[in-house]
Design a protein around this nucleic acid. Structure first.
Lengths: 217, 217
DNA sequence: GAGAATATTGACTGACCAGTCAGTCAGTGT
DNA sequence: ACACTGACTGACTGGTCAGTCAATATTCTC
């Protein structure tokens, strides 16, 4: 086969892989991992089951690849928006909004992501990768918090715990949106959460009622 | 059969049910719902598979019963501790600590609970019950927040959103403990979270940088 | 357009498992 | 001592599904 032909093959192959991942995202968001048959993915992608195994080694392989692709993409977008913002407050708002926007566009992904995050606690196996991605993302937020502290924008806080808290709150927001609990208006919730967090860690701390329990990290 | 004998039978039966639920909690926390065979539960409970079906209608029935039992028990304990505390700050601390204590004692339960919470987003079916329990618990926290606002202990905040945020943070804390991320010391994290939340909603609000986005609920 | 190279297909296989039910037997009442 | 009851058992059934591979289709090269 000529070089040109080979390249076009490779591209096609790449696109095919992406199609499969799109299909996987769709079907895995409808039923959980176990309830989804490999045939369902194939059908959604309009190819035969056997073909899937030309591009991926196993069902789990497909699942993880689909998930990781979106997790990475989301992190990239959130980071880009945050870097553009100046203050911590703006950065936080950007973080929350980026997550909201991405989850609006890829609700399927969000469903799988939330399910997977939960199941980290009952399956030991190789959700390691996902777990590490999460930590990496959290690490970045921690850095942002540390910088804000260095600039004197906020008081000194344990940056890891703060970052974790920010993640927790953001996740809750998206969950409630997904559940359609109508008393929660996501946009208002974002403003409220950002305000609360910023007030909670701003310059002059509310005199803590207790002595030393708050060690720095 | 005499009356006395019948009663002792009923008690025995009740105890047997509880044993099965204990066994279920153990095995469902090791592998996820789908990966767990009904035989595994039976084996753990040291009874035959058929016997399970004398006490429960299906695998799902066992699963939900086991989960609901603990969710309810946890809510009761948390509530009791909170009612004993005076200020919002103390109530929050009690809430976080109750969850921590219960989760320490019943780590198995926590694992299942987290997994189930996540899978609410990919399975429509009757996880309704769990979902409603959650909302009920959240509603209670919202009430506590409202009372604190009425007492003037904190500023006026959207109580639903605040309660939700508190839940999110508490969950995150327990997750990190379970994952054994050693840079997170749960006790310190609790103090930090309580402080942050209380500072964030205390009497004199940090002048919000933006106008009307913060509608009351 | 022949024929090689590569890609796709879907029927098939083996493993697994929820739920059933005919049979066992310990304990109860007479 | 014996009949009876109902809790318990575990082999069995029907169905599902991940992954395979021989057969078929498509694309490429000359």
């Amino acid at each position: 086969m000529t070089l040109a032909a080979k390249e076009s093959r490779d591209q096609l192959s790449e696109r095919r892989r992406d199609c499969i991942l799109d299909a996987a995202r769709t079907v895995f968001s409808r039923k959980d991992y176990a309830a989804t048959a490999v045939e369902d993915i194939a059908e959604q992608a309009r190819i035969a089951k056997g073909t899937l195994y030309l591009y991926f080694r196993s069902k789990e392989d497909i699942y993880l690849a689909a998930l990781a692709r979106d997790v990475r993409e989301l992190a990239v977008q959130a980071r880009r928006e945050m870097e553009r913002a100046g203050t911590l407050r703006r950065k936080l708002r950007a973080f929350f909004r980026a997550r909201l926007e991405y989850s609006k566009k890829h609700e399927d992904f969000l469903r799988i992501y939330l399910a997977e995050y939960g199941s980290m606690f009952v399956k030991s196996p190789l959700r390691k990768e996902l777990c590490n991605l999460s930590r990496e993302n959290m690490r970045y937020i921690a850095t942002v918090v540390e910088e804000a502290a260095r600039r004197g924008e906020i008081r000194r806080v344990p940056s890891g715990a703060t970052a974790a808290l920010i993640f927790d709150v953001a996740r809750g927001l998206l969950e409630r949106r997904l559940l359609g609990w109508k008393e929660f208006q996501t946009r208002n919730e974002i403003e409220f959460a950002v305000d609360l967090i910023c007030s909670g860690i701003e310059r002059s701390p509310a005199a803590p009622k207790r002595k030393g329990a708050l060690k720095r990290k």
